[in-house]
Write a protein that binds this DNA or RNA. Structure first.
Length: 374
DNA sequence: AATTCGGGGAC
DNA sequence: GTCCCAGAATT
């Protein structure tokens, strides 16, 4: 009896799902479609593991069309492991400016430095060594091993979970960690040992072009004949995914503090947490600071003596987990007492040398327009 | 297991 | 407005 219960809960279920399709035909149909329809993307020019690595990190939670220009600029600036390893972090962040999830850039460079020193510049083709690198999780590890090194390792991302949840009609919540592990088990059994690189890319390409989140193009799908959700007519209900909770709202006053020579005060953010090590105009959390105490708070917190000027505008910026409400004010910088190098006084033109998060890029850009219509 | 990490595009 | 994207690290 114990034996029976154990198997219903684990291996038996896996085999049952896979028995619903002919694996060899599935591979053939998927791969022949991929070879005909794959997009010509910059990181598909070759199988250079460094280029694959950079592309996979940039593509984390980020659409292909967004990544392409960033990837091209990044690779021309840092063509090799050595080039990226030797670069200044601020230069790397400047190339990443606007792409988001900036710890990706810092972790990537950290890992590349480790590859340069510990592995003599060669990206490991070993799962354990690869997975130990900063920013290389289960997906990126599998992607590099399969795409660059042709190893039959699963690379389960959102596309793969969507495609497989439909093909195999799996109704588990894909936000759960154990569900992702389940998909890795299936992917490992489905992957074509003859061409793991193309197979993994083909599943993702199918997810991006055909098996889309909404209104999937099932009539054009090369594996429609294998799809259990299509048979049931439930493809639009899959995958099952728990909703994210709402963001928190935070209000700030942003200070465009200018000295008598038209230089702006900017600050470097903390080295961890949100937008780590990026630059911004000073921000005052206005819910915690009374308006009448604002100048005083700036003096104590920043070591800046200012007089608040006119309101220039406002803007809202939505992050994944919070929303910034920014009110932009001019200010006159009377005196800078702080000696901290995280606080810099720079000219309007020099502002573009620093990596800014998007909301502060918008404020910065408004400085270059005669009309400040924000 | 939950939260924290950005930003943009499709709808 | 909602969803979600070639996810990982942290708590």
């Amino acid at each position: 009896m114990m034996f029976l219960l154990y198997h219903i809960g684990s291996e038996f279920m896996n085999d049952e799902k896979l028995q619903s399709i002919d694996i060899l035909t599935f591979r053939r149909d998927l791969l022949s479609w991929y070879k005909e329809n794959k997009r010509d993307l910059p990181w598909r020019q070759d199988q250079d593991p460094y280029r694959v690595w950079v592309s996979e990190v940039m593509l984390q939670q980020t659409k292909v069309d967004t990544v392409i220009p960033y990837f091209n600029r990044f690779m021309s600036k840092f063509p090799t492991v050595e080039a990226l390893a030797q670069a200044d972090e601020q230069v790397v962040l400047k190339e990443w400016e606007g792409l988001g999830y900036y710890s990706r850039a810092r972790n990537l460079q950290n890992a590349v430095k480790e590859v340069a020193t510990k592995y003599n510049g060669r990206v490991p083709d070993d799962a354990e060594q690869l997975g130990a690198l900063k920013g290389v999780g289960p997906y990126t590890k599998g992607a590099i091993l399969s795409i660059a090194y042709n190893q039959p390792e699963p690379a389960v991302d959102g596309n793969v979970m969507r495609v497989l949840s439909r093909v195999l009609k799996i109704e588990s919540d894909i936000t759960q960690q154990r569900t992702k592990k389940l998909f890795e088990v299936y992917a490992r059994k489905l992957i074509d040992p003859q061409d793991p690189s193309s197979f993994n890319q083909a599943v993702m390409e199918l997810g991006a072009l055909i098996c889309t989140p909404k209104s999937p193009a099932c009539l054009l799908c090369p594996v429609q004949a294998h799809c259990q959700a299509f048979v049931a007519g439930t493809e639009e209900q899959l995958p099952v995914k728990k909703k994210a909770k709402k963001q928190k709202n935070i209000a700030y006053v942003v200070l465009l503090a200018v000295d008598d020579q038209d230089n702006y005060i900017i600050e470097k953010r903390k080295e961890d947490g949100l937008l780590a090590n990026l630059w911004q105009f000073p921000m005052v959390p206005i819910k915690e600071v009374e308006w009448v105490h604002l100048e005083n708070w700036v003096y104590n917190e920043y070591g800046l003596e200012i007089t608040l000027g006119e309101k220039q505008g406002k803007l809202k910026h939505v992050f994944s987990h919070l929303i910034w409400h920014l009110e932009v004010y001019e200010a006159k910088l009377i005196k800078k007492l702080s000696k901290s190098n995280r606080l810099q006084l720079v000219s309007k033109q020099e502002l573009t040398n620093y990596p800014f998060p998007v909301p502060h890029q918008k404020i910065r850009n408004s400085l270059y327009e005669k009309e400040q219509n924000m």
